[in-house]
Design a protein around this nucleic acid. Structure first.
Lengths: 112, 112
DNA sequence: CCATTATTTGCACGATTGCGCAAATTTCAT
DNA sequence: ATGAAATTTGCGCAATCGTGCAAATAATGG
């Protein structure tokens, strides 16, 4: 009788769940990276205009980048009057990154 | 006298060091993600031909993807006869991801 | 030396991406 | 209502990217 081991399929699924292309794609652009970094150094949400100051491009481009980050689940936003406030849930993002690390190591340990 | 706090500049630098665009860019393509996942589930290095079986594209494309991952410091390679073996240092990759998570959280805690 | 195997690279093409500008939209103030 | 402020969206353009095919390179075996 063979020893029971985790199925390779479980790793395939776990890796597909944690290494989501849309998540990683959202983080691969220099401007979006600086947006995330900028928001990580704040406790309060920031407006599009404030965020624009940190990236050297037009605010319309910043708006598009924010949309991409939001759709990837990295940022959240809500209206406040005529402003739109964007905020980063740092703990959630950190947890996602650690989940990737954990999954990679678990799969490595179970590897043949 | 004010209490000594970490300079914001330290966070800017730490974030720039950990959230490297070339690293994140290397991980943003679906094929490259599946290459990393494939190698994470192995203990032994794999040849280009073996890796090609896991991605649905031509081996020339796989070779290019491997080059990108290697230049980002994610993969290593060495020749073995006419084969070239690629391997993933899972622990190093996991450490890089956790460093990102740690830096983000540290900067968040020091944020104003 | 020649044929074979494995990988890399040159090239061209189509698709995607990021960008600025201008127009549209939303909300507020007077 | 009218105008101003903040953001989003449409559009076109240049640049980058991923891909397949074919040729070049590297290494082995007969």
């Amino acid at each position: 009788m063979t020893k029971s081991v985790a199925l390779p399929e479980a790793c395939v699924e776990a890796l597909a769940d944690t290494m989501r292309p849309d998540f990683l794609k959202a983080l691969c652009d220099p401007v979006r990276i600086s947006i995330v970094a900028t928001l990580a150094m704040r406790t309060r949400p920031a407006t599009v205009s404030e965020i624009t100051d940190c990236c050297g491009i037009d605010f319309s481009g910043v708006s598009r980048h924010l949309k991409i980050l939001k759709e990837a689940g990295i940022l959240h936003s809500h209206r406040d009057g005529r402003r739109v406030l964007y905020n980063l849930d740092v703990d959630a993002l950190a947890a996602t990154l650690r989940a990737m690390a954990d999954t990679l190591e678990v799969c490595q340990r179970e590897a043949v």
